[in-house]
Nucleic acid binder design. Structure first.
Lengths: 234, 234
DNA sequence: ATTTTAAATGTACTATATACACTTCTAGTT
DNA sequence: AACTAGAAGTGTATATAGTACATTTAAAAT
């Protein structure tokens, strides 16, 4: 007996991951891209992707792709959009769900990258990407800008301990504009979500800059009570 | 010769549409739901959906489903989220991309609804829905609330001509809270996007309320120059 | 003429966002 | 020991936007 749905066509389904990182030294937002080692489009740059298997959800598939590539699990990850144009992949019709992920570059072993053909590339000078991957990246960038305004996701791109200067530089790299130092500090500190550490970062200045940590528990507690994170600039 | 992707599994792909309408008289947000006339889940309530065909994009599929159901094309429509849990449909593994659409209830011929088994149901008293459709609706509702704050999409739910009272009632129905009449009017009128008509709505009061029209061209022009629509309330 | 009902209107206050420049700290140099 | 250099750190005044709030106006019905 044929299945009730059997008169409908089936499709290849993929996930593609837009993986953001932030380079503290260069003060630049980066993307983890793959130099393809297989056809079609061998040798060209692409997002990390993979086909959705029978027994895994979309989220699982994206998590698997991310974990295979980075060796990391429990990354910040979010579904972005599903791209379903019939001709988007010249190899065959493939529908692809894009995910964006945020990872601290420091967490990632450069050896793993080498092994996987993965490279961090600056947002400001991206190579040409295959298929509609550039469209995905542009959407992810927009989403990231909106997201960091009202959710404390920027911290995912920094190490556990970070300075206010580093945090501000990150926001400037995402917003692509300068932010007033005093207003930025006033705003973030007034939320009382950052715990000042007894330790200074001493690489970039003689004076040194105090380390802070983002207090996730406190944020969750406040958010439950209707608190809204906000670091938007106009 | 087998195709390069042939080692990967294929999947059923569907679209489901969360169709919002607004009842001016009842001042209530509504959803267009289907009483299923086929298995699985015959007789239960569901969103309007359909399978994605070989030769159509996801957007096309959603447009087709909407058009089949309502007889209307060029509806306001937007991709919402893709649901890919393996067991979400008990009939078979089906990945579904949810779209939300906004339509003016007045535009829709009640006869077409009858023919299609479609019914407008109040958001405040929705029946139980099949599969994960309730989850889709909840996400769409959240999205709608955020959307009407910063984009002029609420007008899609009203007739061409509407009064400020009707517009405010719509926002109150979406926000699920009362809004100050004077502040609301001040805000929307200061944007100078509404063209006052020489005609009054006379059904609901002796005095009558002036009709307005939303000026799309003006909005587009302003938006190009960095203007941001905003009818958020805190 | 009076009543009734919903539409229409303005101002004072509060909170948030923005603009802006000097002082502090400390390692390295003289 | 004093000086220099370079980045970290800090406060206030102004402008803008958000909020709270009550009376008048219009017109149909009696």
């Amino acid at each position: 007996m044929t299945h009730i749905y059997s008169k409908y066509p089936k499709h290849y389904l993929a996930v593609d991951c837009i993986i953001f990182g932030y380079d503290i030294a260069e003060k630049e937002l980066k993307l983890l891209l793959i130099k393809r080692s297989f056809e079609p489009a061998l040798g060209q740059w692409s997002l990390a992707g993979g086909f959705v298997q029978e027994n895994e959800s979309l989220d699982d598939a994206a998590g698997r792709v991310l974990c295979t590539l980075t060796g990391l699990s429990d990354l910040y990850m979010e579904q972005l959009y599903t791209y379903g144009e019939t001709k988007r992949d010249p190899g065959a019709r493939v529908i692809s769900t894009a995910y964006f992920a945020l990872i601290g570059i420091h967490e990632l072993d450069p050896e793993i990258n080498k092994k996987n053909g993965a490279h961090w590339r600056s947002i400001s000078s991206l190579p040409e990407l295959i298929f509609d991957h550039r469209v995905m990246v542009d959407r992810a960038l927009k989403e990231l800008v909106e997201k960091v305004k009202v959710y404390p996701v920027g911290f995912e791109l920094l190490p556990e301990k970070f300075t206010l200067v580093q945090l501000q530089n990150l926001y400037e790299a995402i917003y692509l504009r300068n932010v007033d130092k005093r207003n930025f500090r006033k705003k973030i500190l007034s939320m009382e979500l950052l715990d000042k550490q007894d330790e200074k970062e001493r690489e970039t200045s003689k004076k040194g800059a105090w380390y802070y940590r983002f207090n996730v528990e406190k944020y969750r507690e406040l958010a439950r009570n209707g608190f809204f994170f906000n670091l938007a600039v106009s």
